[in-house]
Design a protein around this nucleic acid. Sequence first.
DNA 1: CTGCGCTGGTGTACGGCGTACGCCTTCGAC
DNA 2: GTCGAAGGCGTACGCCGTACACCAGCGCAG
Lengths: 232, 232
Amino acid sequence: MARPDASGPRARLNRPSVLAAAVALADEVGVEGLSMRRLAQELGVVPMALYKHVRNKDELLDGMVEFLIGEIGDVGETEAAEDWKGRARTRVLAAREVLMRHPWARRLFETRSTKTGAVLDYMNSFAGILLSGGLSAELTHHAMHAIGGRMWGFTQELFEDEPSTPPQGPEAAAMMQEMAQRFPHIAAIASMEHDDSVVGRGCDDQFEFEFALDLILDGIERRHLSGWRSTP
Amino acid sequence: MARPDASGPRARLNRPSVLAAAVALADEVGVEGLSMRRLAQELGVVPMALYKHVRNKDELLDGMVEFLIGEIGDVGETEAAEDWKGRARTRVLAAREVLMRHPWARRLFETRSTKTGAVLDYMNSFAGILLSGGLSAELTHHAMHAIGGRMWGFTQELFEDEPSTPPQGPEAAAMMQEMAQRFPHIAAIASMEHDDSVVGRGCDDQFEFEFALDLILDGIERRHLSGWRSTP
DNA sequence: CTGCGCTGGTGTACGGCGTACGCCTTCGAC
DNA sequence: GTCGAAGGCGTACGCCGTACACCAGCGCAG
């Protein structure tokens, strides 16, 4: 009775609630204003309490990315009876919608390099859209890279292999087998060297970059030559 | 004679030498390992000494960007007798070459948002390449934006106006006049609404994003339909 | 030659950060 | 009722950026 329920004295923390609070706080003060201490204070808790739910700040940031990917999923549901191009388009625009709601998130996506399960899931399903349209694994691979180059001269590396731990022993092979099952589309576009090796060598970064660059320049030239105008 | 010249006891600091040392240090320990204290130590000087040459760490970072843009200039000299597409291509690849030499720099370019003179110079000359090819100011504007979108759903904002200080009074007009003279190409593509206003309203972000997205998707589709293979 | 001001390096100090480590409370299972 | 684990607490450490006051040496006016 006297138990204050709605505005309770303190709700027990858990990982999702911590992540949600972190996202909310970042919405308020930006990602550079987000600190463990500040977040703890927002939750009415001492800083070290957070470490019971999150290994460290990096993992908190990764968790926030995960959280946002969840939001993308919520947005981009009805992408049924379109061709691959339309589906890819609406998917990207759904992602964009989420990113626009959380302006700080762009930085976060750019910064984080570790690929959590959620990130791989997203990439996998995106690759799936292209593959289901009949695009070859090769073209899909390069297309994935193409969506992200810039005038300054670099490409967002999607598959930054970091081969510090090259496939070693039979248990590694088993793990890759499992990966291939969980992320079949990624597996399909990751290997193009031989049909048997599921996860191939890293890709030729320079090639990817020039592929994307030429894609853009060709498209611009085509529009230029056909007298493109913004208001047709 | 006894004056130790080459390995002197202490060379006087100045802004360029501080920036160069910062770049060198970042090459060693990465940009996240770069701290004012560490940099000072590397220069054999007390941390606060740096603040005589750089207002704060943000300005140091901006200065490093400047420094790298200088390197791009050194690389991309011989871009004479090509068409606009070729010149844009070699320019971008020159930028890329520099970025590859300093892997940490990509993050830095993505993070920094303030446009120093060097940045504007670079953008201006890049726009100049496109304009000199006969591209309309409109198409050039969108093309600049297009070189930098990604699957996650955002575009690198080149002209993030942040209209906190909208053009006010006659002295602002004078400043814009000066801008237009120093960066004529940027002025040309920044305004497309009326021929008289030199610096127009901010641009439609959503339009830019979809322009770039369609550019890429169209290009991929074209390659797909014509049976593109990586080894022709 | 003297004194003075300016430029640039120094020393100290403060508040904020991430987080290691150990203690204490709470609560569900038995 | 007991116990063990899970979760929140307190303290402490070593980094960080940087404000502020001070001082060394040099160029120059007198």
